[in-house]
Every structure is written in C-alpha cells, then in structure tokens.
Simulated scan of single mutants.
Amino acid sequence: MKETILYRPVGPEELALIEASGWKKFPPRLPEQPIFYPVMNEDYAIQIARDWNVPASGSGHVTKFAIDEEYLKKFAVQNVGGPIHNELWVPAEELEIFNDHIVGVIEVVKSFFSAKVER
C-alpha cells in the first residue's frame, strides 16, 4: 500500500482530543464545521498554525500523518490561495472513514505559542 503524507494545523483543544484517541484519529467536526481539511504541505500547515491558531487560542500545532494513497483519490485537491495553499475537503460525515485509513499515528512536528504573558 502506498501512503501519502498530509498535515493538519490544530489548536490546543483539537490536539488534546487527538492525544486522547491515542494519536490515532481526528475528532468529529463541530456542527458549524461541515468540512475537515487536511493540507498537502508542511509550509501551509505552519502558516495556519502560527498565524491563525496562535492568535485564536494561544497555541498552534502542526500534525503530520500518513494515509492510504488509494483512498485519497476520491478527494480532489483544492487550491485556496497561493501555490502552497492546497488542501483536501473531506465532508464531516466522512471523517470516521478517513480516520480508518490513517496509517500509523498522528504526530506533532511543530508547535507555536503566544508570546503574551499572563499576569
């Protein structure tokens, strides 16, 4: 089986849920989140984790995981901006099946934290 490496930028709450799964799956989407979007490259994941997750929640983390390449063929790559802004759009109702195709574990490869000091 061939595998593809994908990335997912997450905040602290999603990271805690991934850890609670034994680093095996992504948590279900919230009702206002109809799409799960893993991204195709680490640079884009870093950009989201650092520039969006940190201001929103105090930290941002880049996760990396392998997934069955054959399964991924059902999802078209979506470009949502510049040359590095490629992601997959996985419908929320498909996420459990998506999780079943993850090979190995989800790992954290980079973390970013707010420089703001609480007093």
Rank of each mutant, 00 (worst) to 15 (best):
E13P: 00
A49E: 03
Y44M: 05
M40A: 04
V109N: 08
L95N: 07
E13F: 06
P31H: 02
Y7K: 07
D68S: 10
G58D: 05
P83M: 14
K110L: 06
L72M: 14
V103D: 14
R29E: 07
A56C: 08
G11F: 07
I18S: 10
E13H: 13
Q78S: 13
F26G: 01
P31G: 06
Q47M: 14
V90L: 03
L15V: 01
W52P: 08
Y37H: 09
I84E: 15
E14I: 05
L30E: 15
G104I: 01
W52D: 15
V80Y: 13
G22I: 06
Y7S: 06
E87K: 14
W89S: 10
N86A: 13
P34D: 06
P27V: 02
I18H: 11
L95P: 09
N99M: 13
N79L: 08
L15R: 13
L6I: 06
W23M: 04
P31A: 07
E96A: 08
V39P: 04
K74W: 08
R8Y: 12
V109Y: 01
D51L: 07
I106P: 09
V54N: 07
W89R: 14
S21M: 07
N99P: 15
F36Q: 09
S57Q: 12
A56W: 02
V109F: 01
A66W: 11
L72A: 06
D51V: 12
L17V: 00
L30A: 14
P28M: 03
P12C: 09
F112A: 07
H85V: 11
V108N: 08
V10W: 01
F65M: 05
G22Y: 03
V90P: 02
G104H: 09
L17D: 02
D68G: 13
L88C: 14
F26W: 11
D51I: 06
E19T: 02
V80T: 10
K24E: 11
F112R: 03
E93C: 00
H61K: 13
W52I: 14
L95W: 04
E93P: 01
L30V: 09
E32W: 07
